[in-house]
């Protein structure tokens, strides 16, 4: 963020109605290139609708989403998604899975192989490149999915509660891995979660959403030094701050 350039993502007055039901109410924000932005909100606050509008699955009722100053076009822009489900292809080996996105996008073979090698190394799966998904553990599968997303060198990486179903130790571990991967690659990351601690631990900035109809309640800058300590007073203070914002009771 040293240089003041055009934001990577610009969301302008995003509104979504399903019939009479207003789900997203005039949401506007920017994401800087290379930023790690966390979005938290109460359960059922329309996070999924928000994401689906971003990915063009839903057409927004009003407003627009710009990527590099142009309306999002999945044919032109390279957006990667990571969800809870380990959507690896069971008939492909680890390396083929990591290369799947590159293959789909028609990246030249030699270049694709170099990228696959690089990211297999980064996520620590180089030894397992010839394995099939049914021979791997949950955390390894999640790493395959992460490597597959990063290997496509996305303009924007969207993550929707990727660690929602994992146990705590594993989550901590993968979160750290993701942070270091992000620091290394400078990818722009939009991380959606309902887990406040996770949001405070990961993000450079936290966007807190309100209940339906969803709008932005507050944006919080998070300058805690990394690696962050979830038990430090500053961390706890920030976490409580976010928790208070989310409370609807």
């Amino acid at each position: 963020m040293e240089e003041k350039k055009m934001p990577k993502v610009q969301v302008r007055g995003l509104t979504k109605r399903f019939g009479d039901l207003l789900v997203l109410n005039n949401i506007s924000f920017d994401v800087e290139a290379g930023e790690f932005l966390c979005i938290v909100g109460p359960t059922g606050c329309g996070k999924t609708t928000f994401l689906n509008s971003l990915t063009k699955l839903y057409k927004p009722t009003e407003g627009e989403i710009l990527l590099d100053g142009e309306p999002v076009d999945l044919k032109k822009h390279n957006i990667a998604y990571i969800f809870q489900e380990y959507s690896t292809m069971p008939w492909l080996t680890v390396e083929e899975n990591v290369g799947f996105g590159l293959d789909i996008k028609g990246v030249e073979k030699g270049k694709a192989k170099a990228l696959v090698d690089e990211y297999l190394e980064i996520v620590g799966l180089a030894k397992y490149r010839k394995y099939y998904p049914n021979q791997l553990s949950a955390s390894m599968l999640q790493r395959v999915v992460i490597a597959r997303a990063f290997a496509t060198q996305p303009d924007l990486l969207l993550m929707d509660e990727p660690y929602g179903q994992l146990d705590i130790q594993l989550r901590y571990h993968l979160e750290d891995e993701l942070i270091s991967l992000w620091q290394r690659t400078g990818t722009t990351v939009l991380f959606i979660t309902h887990n406040i601690e996770e949001a405070v631990y990961m993000g450079q900035r936290i966007l807190v959403l309100t209940n339906k109809p969803t709008s932005i309640k507050q944006t919080i800058d998070n300058n805690l030094p990394r690696p962050r300590d979830i038990a430090s007073p500053d961390f706890v203070k920030l976490r409580n701050e976010v928790t208070d914002l989310i409370k609807w009771w």
Binding site: T55, L74, K75, I79, A80, S87, G101, I104, K105
Partner: peptide
């Protein structure tokens, strides 16, 4: 899996 492939383009 179909969804994952579509999202990868």
């Amino acid at each position: 899996l179909i969804g994952a492939a579509r999202m990868l383009g």
